[in-house]
């Protein structure tokens, strides 16, 4: 503490006592942001719950239009990507830069697989005229409020997919920085923070999958 101005490693900003304090502070900041994210998605989940309570039969009919198989595949893909992110952080902690880069690349690949499957699912629905809100023209579901289920579906999965796209960008940015040799077991805060974000994207999907796809 006494001569902290001279003992600072280069990655530690001036206003932090040491590397650990900077790490904990960054993590705390990210968790505050994740709380914000949970409540942001919470509003959408709240709409889901209200409408499901009002029209339980609509949700059962409409869920049949969703393909459980591809939903399950996407669940497995996202769980896999969470695992590779956790492995990437472990590699960084153990100073294994090759492992870090490989795990980040696998994560990006899995995220792209998720988006491609999601894209096919959307395209399939658009073919039938299953659009959100007033653009809904599908007549295969015998319920006057059928468009509401799909408005909620598109909002929840669409905002989630937006998070996946942003996540791909962030992980690629982390990959570029890892390639430039910016991280080590001494400093991997951005890897950890981005990892937390990616796990949250996985967490949200863990609830979206049973709520949207697994209604019988």
């Amino acid at each position: 503490m006494a001569n902290h101005s001279t003992s600072h490693p280069t990655h530690v900003h001036h206003h932090f006592v040491d590397s650990d304090q900077q790490f904990d502070t960054a993590k705390l900041g990210m968790w505050v942001f994740l709380v914000n994210e949970i409540l942001f998605f919470g509003g959408l989940f709240c709409a889901y719950i209200v409408y499901r309570a009002w029209y339980p039969e609509l949700f059962q009919m409409a869920a049949l239009e969703l393909n459980t198989f591809w939903g399950a595949v996407n669940t497995v893909v996202l769980i896999g990507s969470s695992l590779t992110v956790a492995m990437a952080i472990r590699s960084a902690q153990k100073n294994q830069m090759k492992g870090l880069k490989i795990n980040l690349l696998i994560t990006i690949a899995l995220a792209l697989v998720f988006m491609v499957i999601k894209g096919f699912e959307y395209a399939h629905k658009f073919e039938y005229g299953i659009f959100p809100g007033e653009f809904y023209t599908y007549d295969g579901i015998d319920h006057p409020q059928a468009h509401i289920f799909f408005s909620i579906y598109y909002m929840l999965t669409g905002v989630h997919a937006l998070h996946v796209i942003i996540g791909i960008g962030l992980i690629y940015w982390i990959y570029r920085r890892a390639k430039r040799g910016e991280f080590s077991s001494e400093y991997y805060t951005p890897v950890e923070i981005t990892g937390l974000y990616w796990h949250l994207v996985d967490l949200i999907w863990i609830f979206l999958f049973p709520l949207l796809y697994l209604i019988e």
């Binding site: 705390l28 968790w31 505050v32 994740l34 709380v35 919470g42």
Partner: peptide, 12 residues
């Protein structure tokens, strides 16, 4: 923080 987020979600 996470537990508080869940509590506030349930409240909402």
């Amino acid at each position: 923080l996470l537990i508080m987020a869940v509590i506030f979600f349930i409240l909402m």
